[in-house]
Simulated assay, not measured.
Amino acid sequence: MQALKETNFTFPAQTGFYRGKVRDVYSFGQQMAVITTDRISAFDVVLPRAIPYKGAVLNSIAAHFLRATADLVPNWLQSTPHPMLSIGRRCQPYPVEMVVRGYLAGHAWRQYREGHRMLCGVALPEGLQENDKLPQPIITPTTKAHEGHDEDISREEIIGRGLVPEAEYRQLEQYALQLFSRGTEMAAKKELILVDTKYEFGRTEEGTILLIDEVHTPDSSRYFYSEGYGERQRKKEPQRQLSKEFVRQWLISEGFQGKEGQQIPEMTDELVQHISARYLELYEKITGLPFTKPGGEDSLEAQLDAAIRQNIIPQ
């Protein structure tokens, strides 16, 4: 199984390059080619081994949901000429991520368990247990850190610090809640619960707000299986999850949460294969479509190089 950890292309007419946690982004004026590699991150740390097919899974799920929500919010995507490649519109990202939570899980539960009843300026009711449904979806934004950890931030801090103008921030909130509602409906049709997710937005030179990055993927979202959810809550049993949380839980069990001085545990071949298989399961369950593995005799890097040259560089 091939796995692509990074690319290092140089193209004619290329105007920029950025390497994120899992994506390599090549800029060409007002367009960009985004390669979703097989890198995997958790606790804001890129893990040492790449996961076969992970990039194709994430890119394909993101494209699926970007197309399914384009009637709600304009987005950056123009085409996907390869399962690991998306081509789209460049814009200036807002320096915050819009995290929407419908259930008390993950980071929100860890904060709640420690006694906090305010999260990003949002009050949480007393008497909740892990994975309970919240009275209504809430937005708990975070900063976007180029290095290190994202940090919780409130609406008031975002506006007060001038990170996002108030009118634009309120539009981001409206878009985020509309997207979460659509994602919830789509998940329900697959017998899933969209627990929480994050959205990122940018602004074009003309002032249009676009939905960017990935949408409703297992890296940016948490899903529960809806069958048996209520019974498991009554018995205070763990929920069956469809997300990257299983990777985080493995790291926690090995004593790693991305904190200073902690050592990333060894990733064995068996673990890498297990994670890869879970991502394939995620794709087929979330989209309801069979997954087609990237093929051909050429390496993934050669395939992507050719796809970018054919689709974005003027001949």
Rank of each mutant, 00 (worst) to 15 (best):
L4K: 05
E6G: 01
P12E: 03
Q14W: 00
Q14A: 00
G16N: 00
G20M: 00
V22A: 00
V25A: 01
F28P: 00
Q31P: 04
A33E: 00
T36C: 07
D38C: 02
I40S: 01
I40L: 02
I40W: 02
V45P: 10
P48F: 02
A50D: 00
Y53H: 08
L58W: 04
L58K: 01
S60A: 07
A62V: 01
A63N: 07
H64E: 02
F65L: 06
R67F: 07
A68E: 01
T69W: 01
L72Q: 02
V73L: 06
P74H: 04
N75R: 01
T80C: 08
M84A: 04
M84F: 02
L85K: 03
S86L: 06
G88I: 03
R90C: 00
C91G: 12
C91P: 09
P95D: 06
V99C: 10
V99E: 11
V100T: 06
G102K: 10
Y103S: 15
Y103K: 14
W109T: 10
Q111L: 15
R113K: 14
M118L: 15
V122I: 10
A123Y: 13
P125W: 14
G127M: 05
L134R: 12
L134A: 13
L134Q: 12
Q136K: 14
I138Y: 13
I138F: 14
T140H: 12
P141G: 04
K144G: 08
G148V: 11
D152C: 11
R155L: 14
I158R: 09
I158W: 10
Q171H: 15
Y175E: 12
Y175C: 13
L179W: 10
R182F: 11
A187F: 06
K190M: 08
E191I: 09
E191K: 14
D196V: 08
R203N: 05
T204P: 03
E206I: 02
E206L: 06
T208D: 15
L210C: 03
L210S: 03
L211S: 05
L211H: 05
E214V: 04
P218F: 07
D219M: 01
S221K: 06
R222D: 09
R222I: 03
R222G: 10
Y223P: 09
Y223C: 09
Q233F: 14
K235Y: 11
L242Q: 07
S243G: 03
F246E: 05
F246C: 04
W250H: 06
K259G: 10
K259Q: 13
Q262H: 07
I264R: 04
P265E: 04
E266P: 08
T268W: 03
D269G: 10
Q273I: 12
Y279Q: 04
K285P: 07
T287Q: 05
P290C: 07
K293W: 10
P294V: 08
G296T: 12
E297L: 15
S299N: 12
E301L: 05
L304T: 02
Q310L: 14
Q310D: 14
N311H: 09
N311Q: 07
I313P: 05
I313V: 11
